[in-house]
Amino acid sequence: MNGVLGVDAGGTSSRAALFTPDGTLVRRGHAAGANPGALGMDRAAANLTAAVRAALGSAQVSAVVIGLAGHPDRCRSLTERVFPPLVPEAAPVRIVGDVVTAFAAGTSSPSGTVLISGTGAIAAKIIDHRPVATADGFGWQLGDEGSAFWLGRAAARATIRTLATARGGDRSGGGLLAVLVVRHLLPGSAGGDAVAELAAAVHARSPLALAELAPLVSEAARGGDPVAVSIVAEAASRLAKTASEVHEPGLPIVLAGGVLTADGPVREAVQGHLEGAVTAGDPAGAAAWLAARPFLDPRESEARHPRFTRPR
């Protein structure tokens, strides 16, 4: 048979991966985001087309699975624009939620829980590779607790309060986290009112840009900064609570998203709450594995899963 194509289409990036049915990687493609709700249909379609073309080359495929979040009608319209010129009419193109591909990136089990912490945060209960319940995922204004945005906002809030109480607005005091945040948001600034400058720098950006500060929280926590350690502990507690709202005991838990797939204190703290949780690998590869499953018997499908989903 021909190859199978998996696609992980997010709001900031799109990744496509072409595999042989035995799990051998043939080629990858990468482009900017392809969420039609966030980017508009034309831009999303152009980006998704670029990623898919790069992965396909001149190859033919027998099946495609795309992990995509958003309204079902928009997702269907997107795939109807992108795939007919690129894949044979006989090759099925199946859309699944990005929570499904994230879950499949961590386990060959068809059912369990996925906890995702990236820019946002959500947990989903998966049954037979279908989401049946979710917790959080309410967006930065209403939820996403323990996400990169949540961590970054906590870091910025702690820092500006530290600066406000520091004698003379000393921007070098207050611990490692405050120093790292000031250095990131006020590069090259050596004087003036640090509180006013930091507030202006934050408000001049998109709110979600605060997610850029999340790695600084991990760095400072590794360095023993007590404020950062406290933020990490609170984030992990909130993430674990989100997972517990949908988790069925005895089934696997997969940790996904940039915050939880990175080797660092947040993941370690979450794993302390969620015993046995595993880290997701490549979601585009997981989508390709889902595309290959109908052509494999159950034992082959389980045995080949690690070849598709090993981290990029």
Rank of each mutant, 00 (worst) to 15 (best):
A287F: 03
R15Q: 11
A288N: 04
L198M: 00
R161H: 12
L239H: 02
G11W: 12
P226N: 01
A243Y: 03
S218P: 00
G175N: 06
R293S: 07
H273N: 02
S108Q: 08
T107I: 04
A63H: 09
T159I: 13
A38P: 00
R53S: 08
P85W: 07
V195S: 00
A291S: 09
A91L: 05
T20H: 06
G29L: 04
N2I: 13
V7Q: 09
G33H: 04
A200C: 08
A105N: 07
G192N: 08
R183M: 05
T159P: 13
V87W: 04
A194N: 05
E234R: 15
P226M: 00
G169S: 07
F308H: 03
A201H: 06
P249I: 09
A9Q: 02
A51I: 05
R267P: 05
I231P: 00
R81E: 07
E197A: 15
E234F: 07
R161M: 13
H129R: 15
L177V: 08
E302S: 13
G106Q: 05
E89I: 06
D263L: 01
T165Q: 15
C75K: 14
L176A: 04
G146N: 03
I116C: 01
G169A: 11
P306F: 12
T113A: 10
L177E: 01
V93E: 06
P110K: 05
H30G: 08
C75Y: 09
